[in-house]
Computed example of a mutant assay.
Amino acid sequence: MKNATPTGTVFVLVHGAWHSSGQWAATQRALAGPGAASVAVDLPGHGFDAPLPTGYLLPGQPGLPTERSRLATLTMDHCAEAVLNVLRRVRHHRTVVLVAHSAGGGPASLAAERAPELVDRIVYLSAFVPGGRPRFVDYLSTPENATARGRSLHLGDPDALGAIRINPLSPDPAYIDELRETHYHDTPRNRFDRWRSALSPDLPLAIPTTPVTLTAARWGRIPRTFLRCAEDRALAPAAQDLMIAEADRAFPDNPFTVHTLPGSHSPFAARPTELAAALAR
């Protein structure tokens, strides 16, 4: 097999809630085929170094609904800086494409706003776009997102916990079924069990609730693409369309290029080769 010719493009991949850099591994392998480089970011509080609630891995998971998260003090600034640190390291590539999934759209957008010279294109994969409304929760609560699932997955009081907590290791089959139906309904069950075991339980509350303010002179000048997930049950397609439309109204000089992918909120699990092809376009 011939070696791929480097394209001069690097993809900086930002995961969504409860995930990590590892979610992108299969997509990165597919991107490497045509010669594209890629770097996946671990946002603070995610990945193998993320601190867990003390009872999470113990029998019976004591205190899981009530123990305050050790991520409660993390801010959107911390998360944006993690993205910026990677962008600075890869700027020597001819083209830098910043890709954000789901809740990762907030940190990625703030990073692009602060340093637009580091980004040649930004891609939102069923991701939060703060162009029209500054907080992710402002879209999650819209009528357009009323069909979305997953609210029953949240444990405890997010304000008291300082995080939106889920339980990927729950012993309750009904809970696990809801987790799969919300995020991974088109991923085979045997593979989903591996995926859920790698999820972190806490999403720092700052990520969905902190306002992100964008400007036409900075974020607005970056070419942008939205990859819609047509059968998304975690962020309804109508809510995705609302974010696109409101961002385009707020920044009409540089509207989104929009493509639609089949399937769920998690194409990196169900069809990574197709996702890589969409990114490579």
Rank of each mutant, 00 (worst) to 15 (best):
E117L: 02
P237V: 03
T142N: 00
D172L: 07
G150R: 06
H19G: 08
G33Q: 15
R151A: 02
G220I: 07
T209V: 12
F256D: 10
D253C: 04
H93D: 13
S21K: 13
Q61D: 07
G105H: 02
L58F: 07
P59S: 10
G156N: 08
P188Y: 04
P134W: 03
A37I: 05
T225M: 14
L74F: 04
R88L: 08
T225N: 07
S152K: 13
A25V: 12
L31Q: 05
I166K: 10
T9I: 13
L52A: 04
S141D: 15
D202S: 11
P237E: 06
P272E: 03
D159G: 07
P168A: 08
D138K: 06
A32T: 03
A36H: 15
F192E: 03
P130D: 08
I176Q: 15
A163Y: 04
I166R: 03
L214H: 10
F256W: 07
G45L: 12
F268D: 02
R151G: 05
L153K: 02
L43M: 01
N85F: 01
H183P: 02
T5K: 14
L161N: 06
A163E: 06
V96M: 07
H265T: 04
A72L: 11
G47I: 05
D253Q: 14
V12P: 01
R180L: 06
F251W: 00
L227G: 04
A82E: 03
H19P: 07
R94L: 06
R271W: 06
P223D: 05
D253V: 03
E274T: 14
S264H: 07
A50L: 06
I207T: 11
G132M: 11
L199P: 13
N167C: 14
L155R: 14
L110V: 04
F48I: 06
Y124N: 12
A17T: 12
R88G: 10
P173I: 08
G55E: 12
P272F: 09
P34Q: 01
T257S: 12
A269S: 09
G45S: 11
A17G: 15
G263V: 01
P208H: 05
D172S: 09
A269V: 03
G22N: 11
T95F: 11
P62F: 10
D193G: 01
T95R: 15
T210N: 10
R189G: 02
T73D: 15
V39H: 09
A247H: 00
A250C: 06
I166G: 08
E67Q: 14
A112E: 11
R281K: 11
G22W: 13
L227V: 04
S21G: 14
R224P: 05
L161E: 02
I176Y: 02
L153D: 01
D157V: 05
L84D: 03
G156I: 08
E274C: 01
V39M: 07
G35H: 08
L199T: 05
D177E: 15
V97I: 15
F128D: 00
R151T: 01
D202W: 11
A72F: 07
P134K: 02
E81Q: 14
H78W: 08
L235T: 14
M76I: 13
S21N: 09
G162Y: 03
L43N: 00
S38Q: 13
T209E: 13
W219S: 13
S20I: 07
P204C: 08
T209A: 07
N190L: 07
R149F: 01
D49N: 10
